[in-house]
């Protein structure tokens, strides 16, 4: 037996390498599938939410809400919300929670709980401006966006984990799923703004002060990045949408009601 020193000329152990084509092909096919499923399940969720009566929702979630701390702001906000609610179609009582923190934010939770932070109140100069913020949150309740957002997040989580299994390939789709969630959320925000403006018109007979909150926030908005991945649209776009709606429906502008002074804490 003799040893013949030789090397193979080609390397059959490496298959055809087309990394970029593979990435584009597989990635786009999976994305298309994911978007299709997400869209279909989104429709199913919207249908299911229409089936779920507000009374039932109230029953399910009422126990989770805690009692708010009594304060002058609290009583005032609760009264204003109740007055505004007469113009809306929210069928259950809404409980406002005033939170004494410097964050400029407000939100709703399932079961008709509305949260409003001190920081937001400080940015407003009139009752009308405050009423617009409350009306915006009422509109979310009326559109049942709190349930929609929750449902969609759940569907996305289940969908990506089924598709990608135990591997952490889910991170590949993270940007895409975030984009989908953000786009849906932005649509709901525009819809809530529109409803809030009509609530304001219904309650005061004019829409003065509606844009105050957005304008005060606009000075702070420093991000020049596009807002595709944000849950809320750009403030300028929201202001433009309000202006357009005003012109379309011929909503008048009039003098605003000042905010009461909260002296006692």
């Amino acid at each position: 037996m003799a040893y013949q020193p030789r090397l193979p000329k080609t390397n059959p152990n490496i298959g055809r390498q087309r990394p970029l084509q593979d990435l584009l092909l597989i990635g786009s096919a999976l994305l298309a599938l994911l978007f299709l499923l997400y869209w279909l399940l989104g429709l199913a969720i919207d249908k299911a939410i229409n089936q779920l009566s507000p009374e039932l929702e109230q029953q399910w979630f009422a126990n989770f809400a805690s009692k708010p701390e009594p304060s002058p702001q609290q009583a005032y906000l609760q009264q204003l919300t109740q007055d505004l609610q007469k113009c809306s179609t929210v069928p259950y009582p809404v409980n406002v929670h005033f939170i004494d923190k410097a964050i400029a934010n407000a939100g709703v939770m399932p079961g008709g709980t509305m949260l409003l932070y001190q920081g937001l109140l400080e940015k407003l100069d009139s009752e009308n401006a405050l009423a617009f913020v409350l009306a915006h949150e009422l509109a979310h309740l009326q559109h049942r966006d709190h349930l929609r957002g929750f449902g969609r997040a759940l569907v996305l989580a289940v969908l990506t984990s089924t598709l990608t299994g135990s591997s952490n390939a889910g991170q590949v789709f993270l940007p895409a799923t975030e984009l989908g969630m953000a786009q849906h959320s932005q649509q709901r925000e525009f819809a809530a703004d529109a409803t809030a403006l009509s609530l304001l018109q219904c309650y005061y007979g004019h829409t003065g002060g509606a844009e105050v909150f957005f304008q005060s926030m606009l000075q702070q908005e420093s991000s020049k990045l596009p807002s595709w991945f944000d849950s809320h649209p750009k403030l300028q776009l929201r202001l433009d949408a309000l202006q357009q709606q005003r012109q379309q429906h011929g909503y008048p502008l009039a003098a605003v009601t000042p905010l009461p002074l909260f002296t006692a804490q």
């Binding site: 593979d22 990435l23 597989i26 096919a29 999976l30 990608t164 390939a169």
Partner: peptide, 9 residues
């Protein structure tokens, strides 16, 4: 990433 995608299809 490519291998992850490949293991799905």
């Amino acid at each position: 990433l490519l291998a992850m995608l490949r293991s799905i299809v």
